[in-house]
Simulated assay, not measured.
Amino acid sequence: MEAAFDLDSVLAAAREEAGLEDFGDTGFTEALAKLLECVSRDLQFSDPGFRAFQANVRRWLVNRLRYVDGVKANPEVLEEDVSDPIIVLGMPRCGTTKMQRLLSVTPGSIPLPLWMTQNPAPFPDEQPGNPAGRIAFARAIQEAQRANNPEFLASHERTAEQAEEDSDLLLFAIDYLMMFIVHPSDALLDWLRERPRLPAYEMQRKLLQYLQWQQGGKQGRRWVLKNPGHIGQLDALSTVYPKATILHLHRDLRTVLPSYCQLIRAIYLDLFDEYNPQRIGRQTLAYWGPEFRRHRAQREKLQDRLNIVDASYQAVLDNAVGVAAEVLARAGITMTGETETALKQWQAENAQHKHGKSSYSMEEFGLDDNAILAAFGTFDEAEDWT
């Protein structure tokens, strides 16, 4: 058990598994040491949760080793242009997943499926163009969640080959604010909040370059990304992706927050034997309130360099294809008949709540109007932008 929290032992185990020595820039080890310290001191994972924690840390490190080795052998990776993605953001539970997956079916897009987010570096025995082992890895995750955690499936479906949020790539930096979400140590959040935000996004860009190179290069295509965690990160996001087209979705926080808390409770079923829902509510306000306010301030400051389309959650429900068409137009992409057909077909095949609907309330998570207003300063900022 002690070795699991010893930095040198953790790094050595990753090197042994990968058969590689060079992590490249080792600045990430400061954040890794802090993560190990806070998890050891502050969290009581269940046995499966602890095994998942160990496996995730090992996966982040082994992929880093393989990435560095891959770029050494193929330095042209760093010439790949990933500057112009379509990025879907907004508070959680605002329709961001639906819009990412819808936009990902358009011709000329590069989707980011779960299998890429879990292992951006090829496995050692992988043949170019045949990531079967990485897909199988992601399918195992998918099947385990389907069998063991139907509550999570009802809140957020994940499949190996369907577009997934890009926060998983940012986690490879270790030094990334959303590390707190699945390692809910208040001390870790306080430490991460004071860290520079740009390095995690620079790491993500490198991984997207590597993934794009593996698929034959840009070829006139662009990534479709999505992450609620981009809230509060507009400065770093727009620096790393200066030609991005951003879709910002909005929804009343009195609906967003209890739905999000229910999702977190479902995630924690895999990590903890028990976790107080009131604590989930408190930590939700502590994480998202400051980031929401930071996001609003950054948006005002950076508005001249941002290419943003705003839409409400209701607009996504009423006319997601129309919202997608507006985003594509803003990105300079012509809406062809082929594109419209692809969008409408995906919409028809992906009904909301097809895996069931969760039941929850603000009260069970200790939330009320006053607490939300105190943390966020508003119930719905949509009127500022839409």
Rank of each mutant, 00 (worst) to 15 (best):
E2C: 03
A4G: 03
D8G: 06
A12V: 06
A12D: 08
E17A: 13
K34I: 09
K34N: 07
L36Q: 03
D42R: 10
Q44D: 07
A55F: 02
N56V: 14
W60K: 11
R66A: 03
R66L: 00
P75A: 03
D81C: 02
V82H: 00
S83Y: 01
S83D: 14
V88H: 00
L89Q: 09
G90P: 01
R93S: 12
T97L: 03
M99D: 00
G108I: 00
W115Q: 02
T117P: 07
N119Q: 15
P122I: 07
E126Y: 04
E126C: 08
A132W: 12
I135A: 07
F137V: 15
A147P: 06
N148W: 05
N149K: 09
L153A: 13
T159A: 11
A160K: 09
L170R: 15
F172K: 14
F180H: 13
D186L: 11
L192A: 06
R193K: 08
P199L: 08
A200P: 08
Y201C: 09
M203I: 15
Q212R: 07
W213T: 07
G216A: 07
K218S: 11
Q219D: 11
R221D: 02
V224T: 08
V224R: 00
P228D: 09
Q233D: 10
S238A: 15
T239V: 10
T245S: 05
H248C: 05
S259R: 10
S259V: 11
D270K: 10
D273M: 06
D273C: 06
N276K: 14
R279Y: 01
P290A: 04
P290G: 02
R294K: 07
Q298K: 04
Q298W: 05
E300S: 13
V309G: 00
Q314A: 13
A315C: 02
V321F: 01
V323C: 00
A324K: 00
A325R: 02
I333Q: 03
M335L: 14
E340F: 00
T341M: 03
K344R: 13
Q345F: 00
A348C: 07
A348L: 04
A351C: 05
H355A: 08
K357F: 05
E364L: 09
D368Q: 04
L373F: 08
L373R: 14
A375W: 02
T378N: 10
